Amino acid sequence: MKFHTRKWVKPEDLNPNNSLFGGRLLQWIDEEAALYAIIQLDNHKVVTKFMSEINFINSPKQGDILEIGLEPVKFGKTSLTLRCEVRNMETRQEIIAINTIVMVNLGDHGHPKPHGKTEIEYINDRLEQTRIKR
């Protein structure tokens, strides 16, 4: 799993128990999953369709730096299924695990649209293909 993003737990992210508010963490995960899918599917119109059971394993505290990791599980006809793990950057302690996040590629009218992708593409590879075509 590749950890793409780091988030710093600040006072405004805390719940009354002085640990990270779960909704804030889910917001960060959803945003990261959307960005990942947008880049992979090469389309800015991507939405979250489904998140499986969310397992909160440990509670981050103020000052912790978290890493959000995503890995593709499956390319569907109009979707990309991801797995997510969030861990404490310094201790590597697992914070949360989500086994299934389904992101759907949309067309101009907001309906699912086939994306034609079957495997992970990296930005450097896309840039290289653009250079070769020139």
Rank of each mutant, 00 (worst) to 15 (best):
E71W: 09
N105S: 15
R6M: 04
N105W: 14
L80N: 09
I65L: 03
F75Y: 15
L66N: 00
R131P: 06
T81E: 08
I98P: 05
E53A: 08
L82W: 06
L70E: 04
L127F: 05
T48Y: 10
I132G: 02
D125T: 14
L127Y: 09
Q129Y: 07
D108N: 10
Y36H: 12
T100L: 13
G23S: 00
L35P: 04
R134H: 11
L35T: 02
A33K: 03
E67V: 04
D30L: 00
H115M: 13
E12W: 00
T5H: 13
L20W: 00
P60C: 03
D42W: 02
L35A: 02
P114T: 10
Q129E: 14
E121S: 14
Y36T: 06
H111W: 06
K117Q: 15
I57N: 02
E31M: 06
M103Q: 14
Q40N: 02
N105I: 09
D42Y: 01
Y36D: 08
V46W: 06
K10Q: 03
D30N: 04
V46P: 12
N99D: 15
Q93R: 04
V102L: 11
T48R: 07
T5P: 07
V86E: 01
A33V: 02
V104T: 15
G69L: 09
D30M: 03
G22L: 05
D13A: 03
R131H: 14
L106R: 09
A97D: 14
K74T: 09
H115A: 13
M89R: 11
M51N: 12
T81R: 07
N18I: 01
Y122L: 10
H109G: 14
M1W: 12
E12F: 00
I54H: 07
Q62I: 07
L25S: 05
I95S: 01
F3Y: 11
V46E: 10
N18S: 01
L20D: 06
G110K: 08
R83G: 13
